[in-house]
Design a protein around this nucleic acid. Structure first.
Lengths: 332, 332
DNA sequence: GTGAAAGCGCTAACAC
DNA sequence: GTGTTAGCGCTTTCAC
């Protein structure tokens, strides 16, 4: 493995000059420059990143802390981060936590160890106030989820507004008996959507019926969605619409309805959220809120980049969602 | 940020001793050891990885080169690699290529730059012989796909045998008119499965009918599967079984059949491959070959680990697949 | 059992 | 425009 010194010797210049060429400093004569490049090619030299990082005190690596890459929602965001990072000359270190808070902290310790310059965190709980401490010391950006208090740079959609859009639509279609399938996790998105559900109902003078609020798995599984929907639909005074916290849950709800002999949408409207799972593979295509996942990822990186370089440390970006009406919903 | 020197001062020992403690070298008196630990805690010191890496000439980072994290098949393998790597004290750098060969090479240059100690490659084409050159110089493991010639350490299932299992089953169920939806990519898995399709037919004295071989997208999209199946099913002498190269394609084929009024499985048997996509969300549940994705990932890391440490450089691991008969197939 | 010191490969301040 | 040199923070001989 050739070093900068080998290149210097080969090109008959000093290491400083090679370094200058490597870093595109202008103060090098064209002629010298060429000689250096020739030497670099000949030895097929590549700068040693550990040495450069040590000297520069940076790594050009960002850390992504995620509970589960297997989740397509995260995967799409990751794609956005990855592309954007690559364009900016950064690499992405993936740290899987399986939702374990200790492993989240272990991941963030990589910042201390200088394994990465900054981090993007997925899936933080509403009550994870300790994140603030890390964020005060290192560049950290929260993606989609964030603690209820304490300003940490972040990017997400407006979950309240999105859920409100859904509710306005459902109510506007004449539905009165409206249920929701929420989740037993501790995400702020969950809390916000549920709050919008309740407040929209109240706003329209529709009573909030506790039997109409059911909780699925923390990870939005198809089966738990199906079970939750079954529970809802077996009530004597069953609802005519269900607002689901995710598409997979909505898929489960539609399946449950089918098994109970209820037609969607004529007998039941089902609305999903995210638009990442197979919303348009099978009929009825699902009415849902589309999140700009890829862009969420790009913005997350952009904000992190600013934190790492300018030191701006309190940016909050809210990206627009899109309400897509398809086949699984209709008027009563 | 505290350095090893700060710790040394605080503990009133030399940096060498701190280093010894850090690396669990036994030659340190218990008493001294404790003092050092106390100093480390007090200063909340974490060793600087760039410095350590430079000195040790290693990074404890592995590189994962993938065309697309969004693909659940890769995502599951990635989960296996990630978990296994974390257990062994390694971090995973993800490098997305979007299938672009230049970006694959750019990724592998990170090995030269000492950004990572070794790499796991996904989705290499059958004809990418250049991989061998890299593999001769750096620890590289191929996952699932590999060049047709040249020994590079790798892990995969036996695609030929798996496809053969499927064909034996289909033929055993009495089917004669059997079609296949292959793909227009250059993967060895594709070639092997297609070869097994043809040779199984031949073996049973069934003529290979070119109209029964149709090619879907390189990335196995649902739509291209549906289109391919439609083309197959509109033939006058249409087949009674279709062997699909992926589950998503199989899902497309089932949808196509439904639209043409053909019942699955009574009018048409459909078999998939991979068992990662939604094979059991909707009826008919799909008969398919299950790949041990997570384990593929774990093994890939294990092999890479050996390459990086022992230098064993030609391990080929073949993991068992599982043929799962569900609802989308039956006797004629 | 512990310390002094060399050096991993690079960048950047300073000299010329 | 180019060279000399001092470190970045760590590990690892080699002394003692």
């Amino acid at each position: 493995m050739a070093t900068i010194e080998d290149v210097a010797k080969e090109a008959k210049v000093s290491v400083a000059t090679v370094s200058r060429v490597l870093n595109n400093k202008k103060a090098v004569k064209e002629e010298t420059c060429k000689r250096v490049y020739r030497a670099i090619d000949k030895l097929s030299f590549e700068p040693n990143m550990s040495a450069r990082n040590l000297r520069r005190n940076e790594t050009r690596v960002i850390l992504i802390v995620t509970p589960n890459i297997t989740n397509p929602y995260y995967a799409h965001i990751l794609a956005g981060i990855g592309d954007c990072a690559q364009e900016a000359g950064y690499s992405a270190l993936i740290h899987n936590t399986s939702g374990n808070e200790k492993r989240v902290k272990a991941g963030l310790d990589m910042l201390k160890k200088k394994r990465a310059d900054g981090a993007i965190l997925f899936a933080s709980n509403m009550d994870s106030m300790w994140i603030k401490e890390y964020a005060d010391e290192y560049p950290i950006v929260l993606c989609s989820e964030y603690p209820a208090k304490g300003h940490v740079p972040r990017v997400s959609i407006d979950n309240y507004k999105a859920a409100q859009d859904v509710m306005e639509y459902i109510i506007g279609m004449g539905h009165i008996r409206i249920a929701t399938i929420s989740s037993s996790n501790k995400y702020i998105s969950t809390a916000l959507r549920l709050r919008a559900y309740k407040e929209s109902l109240l706003w329209h003078n529709i009573e909030v019926h506790e039997d109409y609020i059911v909780y699925a798995d923390a990870d939005y599984s198809f089966m738990s969605g199906k079970e939750a929907a079954t529970k809802i639909l077996k009530q004597k005074n069953r609802p005519t619409a269900i607002f689901c916290i995710s598409d997979t849950i909505a898929l489960g709800a539609i399946t449950a309805a089918k098994e109970l002999g209820i037609d969607v949408p004529s007998g039941l409207s089902v609305i999903g959220f995210d638009d990442v799972d197979d919303t348009t593979m099978f009929h009825p295509y699902i009415t849902t809120i589309a999140q700009p996942c890829y862009d969420l990822g790009r913005q997350a990186f952009r904000i992190l980049y600013n934190c790492m370089n300018d030191g701006k440390a309190d940016e909050v970006t809210v990206l627009p969602h899109k309400f897509i009406i398809r086949e699984s919903s209709g008027s009563i």
